[in-house]
Computed example of a mutant assay.
Amino acid sequence: MNELGNIKISDDVVKTIAAKAAEDVAGVYKLAGGVADEVSKMLGKKRPTNGVKVEVGEKECSIEVYIIVEYGYPISEIAQNVQKAVLNIITQMTGLKVVEVNVYVQDVKIVSETAEETTDDVEIM
């Protein structure tokens, strides 16, 4: 508590910041959501914090990030980069002490260039 009163940062705020930081790391294909996230997706609800779990106290927090890494990137390096990015931005934006950032690599995505081809080469009869 400061002399003006209390400041409480919502779990969702920390989740959103952490999700954005993790998604911006090169080599992260996307965040990997759990069962609740898949149900939300089926119901048409998009949650930008899929794949992030947080515990926020008054002055500190702990964060878990579940990611899918693009094939060809060094997994341990990507995971460490996610940890650093999340730690830095949460500390900078919220002032909370980040006790831990656990990164769980759920899958590796092989991005196929042929899947991104357009239908320009197909003749229409």
Rank of each mutant, 00 (worst) to 15 (best):
E3R: 04
E3S: 11
L4E: 07
G5N: 09
N6Q: 14
I7D: 04
K8H: 10
I9D: 07
I9S: 08
D11W: 08
V13Q: 00
V14T: 06
V14D: 04
K15I: 12
K15G: 12
T16W: 08
T16P: 01
A18S: 15
K20F: 03
K20L: 12
K20N: 04
A21H: 06
A22R: 04
D24W: 01
A26I: 01
V28M: 01
Y29L: 00
K30I: 04
L31C: 01
G33P: 04
G34Q: 13
G34R: 14
V35N: 03
V35C: 01
A36E: 08
A36W: 02
D37Q: 01
E38T: 02
V39Y: 11
K41Y: 09
K41N: 09
K41C: 00
M42P: 00
M42C: 09
M42Y: 08
M42F: 05
L43G: 06
K45L: 10
K46T: 05
K46F: 10
R47M: 07
R47Q: 01
P48N: 12
P48Q: 08
P48M: 14
T49L: 02
T49W: 13
N50T: 02
G51H: 00
E55W: 02
G57S: 15
G57M: 01
K59F: 06
K59E: 13
K59S: 12
E60G: 00
S62L: 07
I63D: 09
V65C: 14
Y66A: 12
I67P: 00
I67S: 05
I68M: 08
I68H: 00
I68A: 07
V69C: 06
V69F: 05
E70Y: 01
E70H: 05
Y71K: 08
Y73I: 09
S76P: 13
S76L: 09
E77C: 02
I78P: 10
I78E: 14
A79W: 10
A79G: 10
Q80K: 13
N81H: 09
N81D: 09
N81L: 11
K84E: 13
K84P: 00
A85D: 02
A85Y: 05
A85C: 08
L87N: 15
L87H: 13
N88I: 02
I89D: 12
I90E: 00
T91L: 04
Q92N: 08
M93D: 02
M93Y: 04
T94N: 11
T94G: 05
T94L: 10
G95V: 10
G95D: 08
K97N: 14
K97A: 11
K97R: 11
V98P: 00
V99L: 11
V101A: 09
V101S: 12
V101P: 03
N102L: 09
N102R: 05
V105T: 14
V105W: 05
D107L: 03
D107E: 13
V108E: 02
K109C: 03
K109A: 13
I110V: 15
E113L: 11
T114W: 00
A115R: 14
E116K: 14
T118P: 01
T118K: 15
